[in-house]
Design a protein around this nucleic acid. Structure first.
Lengths: 204, 204
DNA sequence: AAAAAGTTTAACCAAATGGTTAACAAAAGT
DNA sequence: ACTTTTGTTAACCATTTGGTTAAACTTTTT
């Protein structure tokens, strides 16, 4: 009853909304612009999603669900720390090159309404640092990596991978490189970031 | 003619605008809200700054002028690389703990209108990477630090210092720490970040 | 084929928003 | 003293914005 053409509209709305919201944020996005982007009447947005807020939340949750599994990889997989770092840096950077507005969108809207993270935390597969902390503490005890708080290491991994995309306009300006060269730098970072981290923590 | 009480209003507007814009961004901020925050009539905003856009630009430029000198410290001072990294991490993190909304505001608005960076680039004391690049390349040639592109090292320094504040809501959620503990982590980072970077690049 | 349910549109609406105006008050200049 | 300039306010305005409605069209059900 809703698997043929019907779903198309609902899906197109979500996609159009994704593009507009990710570019302009909740406050900057206009319902009319989303409707135009989807090529449909504005009333349809309300027909399928009731309000701007609910449409936004649908977009946000979808965006977050694309990132969360990657965070789970580093927090909950059974690989060694170094393998995790290499895998994550490689996968995440490849992913974001394809979806350049995603991280900024998520970070930005979480800053605008930090209470939103509580809704996400409540969901079942929300990534959690506990396993990673134990792993790091063990490896430190074994003398394999330098002493460092698991939280700090995790923050460093996130920072080195995520920030170059969020801060791209600023970094492009400061390093004085054009878009093409900057993209090359990002591709280099797929391995560069992991090397940088591992050089810092590895003892052997 | 405008140094006594007159300037106070203009100054109060700028301060109120700073608070509102930094919280809500250009799109989310309301002129009425800024006027209320400043405790004055909305017409005064236009009397002193003509339009929302111009008021915003005044706020943005002021914000950027508070950050730029710190970037210059790492790019153009005469200290050694390690000293620069230690100084910058320490100073920058201390600074941002006092002005927690600043980096997010700047990064966010640069993403929203990347052409804005061109206006900033044109200004005389805009930080530039050239000197830093030569310094890094020399130290690599001398065998003092590991081979790394100056741009990548610079991006790493920025990422490790700036991201923990921009990504705070997400990182607090993922690491499952409360605000107070997170702030402690940030204070630790004044030295932690520098150690982490130097461990990674130092050869001797 | 007729009724029912679901989808789409154009026109409309009230509230919010950036900006203006005209009148008034306070300083400053003469 | 009084004129001019500067600062301030309340009321107002045009446009934009999120959201609604009623009617039309399409698909599904019976």
């Amino acid at each position: 009853m809703n698997k043929t053409k019907d779903t198309t509209t609902e899906f197109e709305i979500l996609n159009a909304a994704k593009r507009i919201f990710q570019h302009k944020g909740m406050a900057g996005a206009r319902m009319q612009e989303i409707a135009d982007e989807a090529g449909i009447n504005k009333a349809m947005l309300h027909y399928y999603y009731r309000s701007k807020q609910l449409l936004f939340e649908a977009v946000f949750k979808k965006a977050f669900s694309m990132i969360a599994p990657q965070l789970n990889d580093i927090l909950n997989s059974d690989l060694s720390i170094c393998e995790k770092i290499r895998d994550f840096s490689n996968n995440y950077i490849s992913f974001v090159i394809k979806h350049p507005y995603l991280p900024n969108f998520i970070i930005q809207e979480l800053n605008r309404s930090p209470e939103f993270i509580q809704k996400l935390l409540a969901e079942k597969h929300f990534p959690n640092i506990e396993k990673f902390r134990k792993q790091v503490d063990n490896k430190i005890a074994e003398g394999i990596i330098r002493p460092i708080k698991a939280e700090q290491l995790f923050i460093n991994i996130m920072a080195l991978n995520i920030f170059p995309f969020i801060g791209a306009p600023l970094l492009k300006g400061l390093t004085n490189v054009d878009d093409k060269t900057y993209k090359k730098l990002m591709i280099e970072r797929k391995t560069e970031v992991a090397d940088f981290i591992i050089n810092s923590i590895k003892l052997t």
